[in-house]
Amino acid sequence: MDTVQTDTGHGAAFLDSSAQLRCHRGLLERIAGPALPQDASLALVRDIAQNL
């Protein structure tokens, strides 16, 4: 990851400093850790949609 783009009500911001990138890498790792694998995630979404 060389650049992070964030979108706000005032437009896009591009973050590219080492500290900013390190912070966003850490966030992505924390999010990805507990995430379901792709096939399990798809099955969960399908199950929820069928039960609506």
Rank of each mutant, 00 (worst) to 15 (best):
D2Y: 10
V4S: 07
V4C: 06
Q5K: 14
Q5Y: 06
Q5N: 09
Q5P: 00
Q5G: 06
Q5R: 14
T6Q: 08
T6P: 01
T6C: 10
D7W: 08
T8F: 12
T8W: 12
H10C: 08
G11D: 13
A12K: 14
A12M: 10
A12L: 10
A13P: 00
A13L: 14
F14N: 15
F14M: 13
F14G: 10
F14Y: 15
L15M: 13
S17Y: 13
S17N: 13
S17A: 14
S18F: 08
A19Y: 10
A19S: 15
L21E: 01
L21F: 08
L21Q: 01
R22Q: 13
R22M: 06
R22E: 14
H24V: 07
H24A: 09
G26N: 04
G26L: 02
G26V: 04
G26W: 01
L28R: 09
R30D: 09
R30T: 03
I31S: 05
A35K: 04
A35P: 02
P37K: 02
P37V: 07
P37Y: 00
Q38P: 03
Q38W: 02
D39P: 03
D39R: 10
S41V: 01
S41I: 01
L42Y: 03
A43W: 05
A43S: 09
L44K: 10
V45H: 05
V45T: 06
V45Q: 09
R46A: 11
R46I: 02
D47N: 06
D47F: 07
D47L: 04
I48H: 03
I48N: 01
I48W: 04
Q50C: 01
Q50K: 04
Q50V: 00
N51H: 08
L52Y: 02
L52W: 01
